[in-house]
Simulated assay, not measured.
Amino acid sequence: MQSPSRVDDHQDLRDAVSDLCSRFPNEYWRRIDEKRGYPEDFVNALTAAGWLAALIPTEYGGSGLGLVEASVIMEEINRSGGNSGACHGQMYNMSTLLRAGSEEQKQRYLPKIATGELRMQSMAVTEPTTGSDTTRLKTTAVRRGDRYVVNGQKVWTSRLQHSDLMILLARTTPADQVSKKVDGLSVFVVEVAAAMKAGMVVKPISNMVNHETNEVFFDNLEIPAENLIGEEGRGFRYILEGLNAERTLIAAECIGDGYWFTDRAVRYSGSRTVFDRPIGQNQGIQFPIAQAFINVEAASLMRFKAAQLHDAGKPCGAEANMAKLLAADASWQAANACLQTHGGFGFAAEYDIERKFRETRLYQVAPISTNLILAYVGEHVLGMPRSY
């Protein structure tokens, strides 16, 4: 089955990524999931091919591509049956460094990220008591001479055990000393190996998806002042720019999942015969699959709109949020249609549907819940009263 939206200006890119992914079939991802492992070989292959350096400008050793192309890469990984969640952080975390980092920081880190010598897979923002209310975070970074001293706790900090660099958001000015609650937060590059030796403790969180994520504790962790990204106190704004990229890329992954589920459902419904007819001939099977496919196609268009605005340097918060919501809903609808089509076999690990079903369910909740997106659109797009 060929999606109309997948025959586009990026077909050569799609084919190249798909070819690499074909070396890592469903059996590979199933073994990784069963072991609760990390797809090291796959991530290394992506890095060697240059795909994880897509957003790094050519002068720093990257491919110099845009978010549009990065989204296609993420989509194709999930479309192949893989899981971009193991490596997508490198794409959107770099957005903060690329847009707000100093030239010295870019020269120090980007070429090594491009070659794979360093990985920047992790972002520490969320805290146990703040969740989506980021401006109330309690982790502090106090300037002392040429260093910042960090104390606090983060949660759901993903891929940290497979990352050399981490983006950290912390409060550098107390909340009661700023005129706007978005002020006084700053963002840093943390070198993970050094931090682990100097006061940072990492505790893995077991979860329903094979997703490496952690609690992180900071006890007087010292960070060089030169690791501050941009201006002190403006970190929340820098993070927001990165989050728009994150939501657009997550949307692309959900779109890839949506196509994977509909492909599987179509194939199975055509081959499974009950009462002397393929079950796909029955409208009760056919219509949910068709509806899911339509919704995936529509979400894909919004994804491209958000990515194009981002690449043009234009505001894209509304589009990125809407793309993420549409794609998450579409992939979840496709997952349910696929599982229902397969019946009991959909629960068997060898069919891979239950694995992908668990993976795509995450995106109803993270990295931003659908409810918060609706609240954002209600307030910032429709001009309705703030609901929280």
Rank of each mutant, 00 (worst) to 15 (best):
P4R: 06
P4G: 09
S5Q: 13
L13G: 03
R14V: 08
V17P: 00
P25W: 03
D33I: 09
G37P: 05
G50T: 02
W51S: 01
L52C: 03
A53K: 01
E59S: 03
S63I: 00
G66H: 07
L67G: 02
V72P: 01
M74C: 14
E76S: 06
R99G: 10
R99C: 05
K106Q: 01
R108L: 12
I113K: 03
T115D: 04
V125F: 04
G131V: 04
A141T: 02
V142D: 03
Y148M: 02
Y148T: 05
N151M: 12
G152M: 09
L160E: 03
Q161K: 14
A175T: 05
A175P: 01
D176Y: 11
V182R: 05
D183C: 07
S186E: 05
S186K: 08
F188Y: 14
F188H: 01
V189K: 02
A194F: 03
M196K: 15
S206H: 11
T213A: 04
N214A: 04
E226G: 12
L228W: 04
E231T: 08
R234A: 14
F236H: 08
G242K: 00
L243Y: 06
R247I: 03
R264F: 06
V266I: 12
S269M: 05
S271H: 09
R272E: 15
T273D: 14
R277Q: 15
Q281H: 12
N282A: 14
P288Q: 09
A290R: 09
Q291M: 15
I294T: 15
L309T: 05
D311Y: 12
G317A: 13
A320L: 10
N321M: 10
K324T: 07
A330T: 04
S331W: 05
N336T: 08
Q340G: 05
H342F: 15
A348C: 12
I353V: 10
I353N: 04
K356R: 14
V365M: 10
N371E: 12
I373H: 00
A375D: 15
H380L: 12
